[in-house]
C-alpha cells in the first residue's frame, strides 16, 4: 500500500496532483492563521489584547469569521457588469495555486521543479492587478473605480524595481530556478544573498509590500478615503476570495524573498521546512508591523518613491552586480 503510494507520488502527474491538493489546503489554513496573526499583532502594537472571546485566547475567532463570510448572501450591485464583477475575485484567487508550485519549501518539498520558476511566479502574480481592474470596473461604483485606477498605477510602477532586484540575484546564481538559488545559499550564514545583495533585498521587500497592496502602500483600498476601494461592493465570499488572495500573495512574496535572499531552508538542527516557514512568517510579521508603524503614503509620494528612488537604485544595483560578476570570473 505505502509502496504503491510512493510510486504514484514519484510519477510527475501524481506528484503534481498531490502538490496542488496540498497547496489548496495550505492556502485555506494560511488564511485562518494570518487573520488571527494580523488581529493579534495589531492588538498588541496598539496595547490591547486583540480577539479574546471565541475559544482560548481567541483562537477560534478566524473560524467564526470564515463561517460568517461563507454564510453571507452574495449581492450584485445594480448596473454592475455581472460577468466581470464575479470573474474578478476568481481571477484574483486562481493564479495563487500556480504561484505556489515552484516554491521550494525544503529540498524535497517542492511542488514542481521548474527551471523558470521565478519567472512563473512573477508572470502569474501579475494577473492580480488585472483582477483588481475588473473588480473596480465591474462594480459600477466610483470608489471602486478610483481604487482600481490606483491599483493599476501602483502595480505597473512597482513591478519594475521588483524585477530589477530579482534579476541581480539571478545574475549571480545564473539560474531562475528557485530551488537552485536556495541550494546555492546553503554554504553557511554568510552565503545568504541578503549579505551579498542587501540593497536588492531592501528594494525587493519594499516593492513586494507595494505589490501586495499592504499598508503603507494600501492606496487601492484606502479605507479612510475610498470606503474599501476596489472591493467596496463585494459581499460574503466575493470579498473573502480577495482577502484570501491577498494573504496568499503575502506568503508567496515572503517565500520568494526567503528563497532568494534568506537562504531558503538553510538552518541548523531543525529540518529545512521549519526554517523556511519560520523565515516566511517572520517576514510576514514585519509586513504587519509596517502596517501599524507607517502612515499611508500619498499617491504622488508613492510614485516618487518608485520612480525616483527604487528604480534608479535597482538599475545601479544591477549594473554593479554585473560588473562584479565580470571582474570575479
Amino acid at each position: 500500500m505505502i509502496a504503491q503510494l510512493t510510486a504514484w507520488l514519484m510519477h510527475p502527474l501524481g506528484h503534481m496532483i498531490a502538490a496542488l491538493a496540498a497547496i489548496m489546503a495550505f492556502v485555506g489554513v494560511n488564511g485562518l492563521v494570518l487573520v488571527y496573526m494580523e488581529r493579534k499583532v495589531a492588538g498588541f502594537i496598539q496595547r490591547r489584547p486583540g480577539p479574546y472571546e471565541v475559544g482560548p485566547q481567541g483562537l477560534l475567532q478566524p473560524v467564526a469569521d470564515a463561517g460568517k463570510l461563507i454564510s453571507k448572501q452574495l449581492a450584485t450591485p445594480e448596473g454592475a457588469d455581472r460577468l466581470m464583477f464575479w470573474a474578478a475575485p476568481i481571477l484574483s484567487m486562481a493564479p495563487v495555486v500556480i504561484c505556489f508550485l515552484p516554491i521550494p519549501f525544503s529540498p524535497l518539498l517542492t511542488g514542481m521543479d521548474v527551471n523558470l520558476g521565478l519567472l512563473l511566479i512573477l508572470a502569474f502574480s501579475g494577473l492580480n492587478s488585472l483582477a483588481l481592474c475588473l473588480a473596480g470596473w465591474g462594480s459600477n461604483n466610483k470608489y471602486s473605480l478610483l481604487g482600481a485606477a490606483r491599483a493599476v498605477a501602483q502595480a505597473v510602477a512597482y513591478e519594475i524595481p521588483l524585477l530589477l532586484s530579482v534579476l541581480a540575484v539571478a545574475f549571480q546564481t545564473g539560474s531562475l530556478n528557485l530551488s537552485v538559488i536556495a541550494q546555492e545559499q546553503t554554504r553557511g550564514l554568510l552565503s545568504w544573498n541578503v549579505f551579498t545583495h542587501p540593497l536588492a533585498f531592501f528594494i525587493f521587500f519594499v516593492a513586494s509590500v507595494a505589490e501586495t497592496n499592504r499598508s503603507p502602500f494600501d492606496l487601492p483600498e484606502a479605507e479612510s478615503e475610498l470606503t474599501a476601494g476596489f472591493h467596496t461592493e463585494y459581499s460574503g465570499m466575493g470579498f473573502g476570495l480577495f482577502f484570501l488572495a491577498e494573504y496568499s500573495y503575502m506568503v508567496i512574496v515572503c517565500a520568494v524573498a526567503t528563497a532568494l535572499f534568506l537562504g531558503g531552508w538553510d538552518g541548523p538542527v531543525l529540518p529545512g521546512i521549519w526554517w523556511f516557514l519560520a523565515k516566511v512568517f517572520g517576514l510576514i510579521f514585519v509586513m504587519m508591523w509596517f502596517r501599524w508603524t507607517f502612515p499611508r503614503v500619498r499617491f504622488d509620494q508613492l510614485l516618487n518613491i518608485c520612480w525616483k528612488w527604487l528604480i534608479p537604485l535597482g538599475l545601479l544595483n544591477l549594473v554593479v552586480t554585473a560588473l562584479m560578476i565580470k571582474l570575479v570570473r
Binding site: 527551471n115 493599476v152 498605477a153
Partner: peptide
C-alpha cells in the same frame, strides 16, 4: 516556456493593464 511566460508577464500583466488604464 520562456517566451510563454514573457508573453504572460508583459502582454497580460503589463500591456493589457495599461490599455485598461487608457480606457478608464
Amino acid at each position: 516556456p520562456f517566451l510563454a511566460l514573457m508573453q504572460i508577464l508583459i502582454y497580460v500583466g503589463a500591456v493589457s493593464v495599461l490599455i485598461f488604464f487608457a480606457i478608464m
